[in-house]
Nucleic acid binder design. Structure first.
Length: 474
RNA sequence: GCGCCCUUCGUCUAUCGGUUAGGACACCAGAUUUUCAUUCUGGGAAGACGGGUUCGACUCCCGUAGGGCGCGCCA
């Protein structure tokens, strides 16, 4: 009853680590934290054809970035193949499994026939009680579980409740392939057992597997771990998450400028709730997380809400920490290298000085970077066409005068900056309050003022330009 | 087709039979901010449908519809 909780996250390295997988890892991690246990990581690389080292790296990098790390050495399932085979053979010896010599052709035939008759494909058990001596010479058998024919198998799920299957609906699954390698079904059970896993927390799509695995546990005479099948995450349109929707690898979220803490917060609220609370620190989640508050229906992924949360986390972040997070993202985003160079080239202090004004205008680190871009742009900036169109010759002359005055200022402080903004606004007829915050920060944090043409060039890129143009001509 | 699961505002969700069905995102309106953003205030917006059970049902039961997952010598 009071044995320590052991959970595990067991991805197969056949593709990227998608957002649903990350949430599964998060739930496992939180559940372990909550009960003072540990979460293990197992890479299910028994599919030699499709498993790749790149995928393994991506999974581990992604989990590290999310802060969801294993509490023990990572287990690679393929390396345990001989143990899996050993268990399968022991089961045969005990009469709980048997050798099956049915050929792929026979199975295809079974499948086609079942389809024609509108039944689900189910192996008919033709070798279940047959003497292996009758096998055609040279044929390589698989090992199948001798599953119970009658009665029922139940999974007492922590999320889904008690789910029951009639055993006649479950056929004799393959444990060991004809080439001697274990199937997923066998490997999972043996590994979970050997790793001492007490709680299996995984996607709802494994619910049926839960029943079949329960049969294997029972045949082995092992205690069945507690199971929690959590609802899946769907795309914004309610359909299964596909590439088209944003079933992107976790690295894509990093490149989009989301903070791990914000992502954890967003993900934990997809399916789990604690009354009306929306914002949870990681410590809070770890102390409150509970399976009984996990819902049973699939949730749609909503970027708008993620962005909103990310904005909250950014605004709450200390400036230095935010800069660190930004620099962590830079290698993963287009133009990041140049931006990093600008920071290292003496721009760090100015960027930090601007941070209070910038961070409340950005919902992602990418937006933060964009917002700060003008600070590091090549001086003098070429005024773009939109900006040029704002001013006639007379206006330009007025601005030149104003600029000259400003450039005579020797020391910039909050008051002079305020005055400068006012002066420039009046001279140009453009409301520059928009840039008051960043300008103020840039000017006081650095001895040089950006020229008005710099500002205009920035304005020219701004979407609010149209409105300002209207104000000017009016 | 068969099995299993799901169904409260557009989205994420609260509600442990009795509530004007609450919160958050998004949206709309207003205040502050010389624009924007932030912040604040207000607004519209939901129990899929049909039967039961009950004094009373979003909540329990059955059915229908819709959606999802599974049905390999893939994981």
């Amino acid at each position: 009853m009071s044995q320590p909780v052991v959970t595990r996250f067991a991805p197969s390295p056949t593709g990227f680590l998608h957002i649903g997988g990350v949430r599964t890892a998060l739930f496992n991690w939180l559940y372990a934290r909550r009960h003072g246990g540990k979460m293990l990581l197992r890479i299910e690389d028994t599919d030699r054809e499709r498993s790749t080292p790149e995928a393994i790296t991506a999974i581990i990098d992604g989990l590290n970035w999310m802060g969801l790390t294993s509490d023990d050495a990572t287990v690679y399932q393929f390396s345990r193949a001989s143990r899996h085979a050993e268990v399968a053979r022991a089961l045969v010896d005990e009469g709980k499994a048997y050798l099956c010599f049915a050929t792929p052709e026979e199975l295809t035939e079974m499948r086609d026939k079942a389809k024609q008759e509108g039944r689900p494909m189910r192996y008919d058990g033709r070798w279940r009680d047959r003497d292996p001596a009758e096998a055609p010479p040279g044929a390589k058998p698989v090992i199948r579980l001798k599953a119970p024919l009658e009665g029922e198998t139940v999974v007492d799920d922590m999320v889904q409740g008690r789910v029951t299957w009639a055993n006649r609906d479950l056929d004799d699954l393959v444990l060991l392939r004809s080439d001697g390698t274990p199937t997923y079904m066998l490997a999972v059970v043996v590994d979970d057992h050997d790793m001492g896993v007490t709680h299996i927390i995984r996607g709802d799509d494994h619910l049926t597997n839960g029943a079949r695995q329960t049969q294997i546990y029972q045949s082995c005479g092992w205690a069945v771990p507690a199971m929690a099948h959590i609802p899946l995450i769907h795309g914004p349109d309610g359909a299964k998450l596909s590439k088209r929707h944003g079933a992107l690898g976790i690295e894509a979220y990093r490149a989009m400028g989301y903070l791990p803490a914000a992502l954890r917060n967003y993900l934990v609220r997809l399916g789990w709730s604690h009354g009306d609370q929306e914002v949870f620190s990681t410590d809070e989640m770890a102390s409150l997380f509970d399976m009984k508050n996990v819902g049973r229906s699939a949730a749609r992924f909503d970027f708008a809400k993620l962005s909103n949360l990310n904005g909250i986390y950014m605004r709450q972040s200390e400036d230095g920490a935010l800069l660190t997070a930004l620099e962590d993202m830079l290698p993963h985003v287009e133009g990041g290298a140049a931006f990093q160079a600008a920071i290292d080239g003496g721009g760090r202090a100015r960027l930090l000085a601007m941070m209070p004004g910038l961070k409340e205008r950005a919902k992602t680190l990418v937006e933060l970077m964009d917002g700060a871009q003008f600070l590091f742009a090549q001086r003098p900036l070429a005024m773009d066409d939109k900006a040029k169109g704002l001013l006639d010759a007379e206006g330009k002359a007025r601005l030149a005068d104003a600029l000259q005055t400003l450039e005579a200022v020797e020391h910039w402080d909050a008051a002079t900056t305020e005055g400068a903004i006012r002066t420039l606004s009046e001279a140009s007829g453009i409301k520059l309050g928009q840039y008051a915050q960043p300008l103020r920060a840039a000017m006081t944090g650095h001895a040089t003022s950006p020229g008005i043409f710099d500002v205009l060039a920035v304005l020219g890129r701004d979407e609010s330009l149209g409105r300002m143009r209207d104000q000017i001509s009016a």
